[in-house]
Design a protein around this nucleic acid. Structure first.
Lengths: 146, 146
DNA sequence: TGCAACTCGATTGTGCACAACTTAATTGAG
DNA sequence: CTCAATTAAGTTGTGCACAATCGAGTTGCA
């Protein structure tokens, strides 16, 4: 077999799956006025209520270059507020507005709909989840020390 | 369990894995002067030698809005040439330059290095590959008819 | 205490991804 | 044969992702 054949490369399969998921989420989230990465940010906020930009970056593995403009758009949409942490003026705290909190209810049915679109059962999805977690960890570690 | 918990969502696992792979490829491909999507295009060209923009889009599931500027950059780098198909002037054929053909040798060791960084065995990777293929197909089909 | 090192976030620049639209070439129904 | 519909690329605009860099604020240690 040819090591460079496109169809044989797992990288492409991951890439393609990621974009296919993105497309499905794009459709489902359009009604909420959110993009998929904005939805991820909202998930963290619905879980924790309030979070610093740094902790958001740790949770989502995104840096400030991605988060700063994204959070500005969420703020412009009236879903979050940003303010300096009084205890440490370097840090910016992001928290939900009432509108942002209310949006949660409308996001609630989403995971089930995506699961149905995936055509896979809960066990299979859990398995995939574990495998991908392991892959991500390995890749991240190997990237750390070249 | 809470359906909206970030850690429980497969979508995030796929997204994170895709970006982690991207990061590893970024490092490996830097020496070749390629980005990861440019590498995917080169894979197709190394396989087929010559391809229309349309067929490239079908193979990679990318539209002209993504491919046009990407191909311009590959052309500026001297790796490909683009010319109208004499048989159908709407179509643009992309083909390798000698430099582009030569680059293949330097890309050859890449899949093995990525496989090592993944920390997974061939069987496990093949399994993941199959699962992701199925997932992508289901999602694409469900996106087709909302 | 004073200043060097570090932390946090924002900004800038490049490139990918996609939607919506434009233009040019081709096809086909009447 | 003609012209409306279709097809192929390209263009424009928006948003995500990341590297590199900057400036303000904090910490630690000499």
């Amino acid at each position: 077999m040819d090591a460079l054949r496109l169809d044989d490369q797992v990288c492409f399969a991951v890439h393609a799956a990621s974009r296919a998921l993105d497309a499905v989420y794009r459709r489902e989230l359009a009604a909420l006025g959110l993009t998929y990465p904005q939805y991820l940010v909202m998930l963290v906020l619905w879980e924790r209520g309030q979070v610093s930009v740094k902790d958001l970056g740790l949770a989502l593995r995104l840096d400030s270059g991605t988060l700063s403009p994204l959070l500005k758009r969420l703020e412009a949409a009236g879903l979050v507020r940003r303010e300096r942490d009084p205890g440490d003026e370097r840090s910016v705290l992001v928290r939900l507005t009432p509108e942002g909190t209310l949006l949660r209810a409308r996001a609630e049915p989403l995971p089930r709909r995506i699961m149905e679109a995936s055509g896979m059962g809960p066990d299979e999805l859990a398995d995939l989840h574990r495998t991908l977690g392991r892959l991500t960890r390995s890749l991240t570690e190997s990237a750390g020390r070249p």
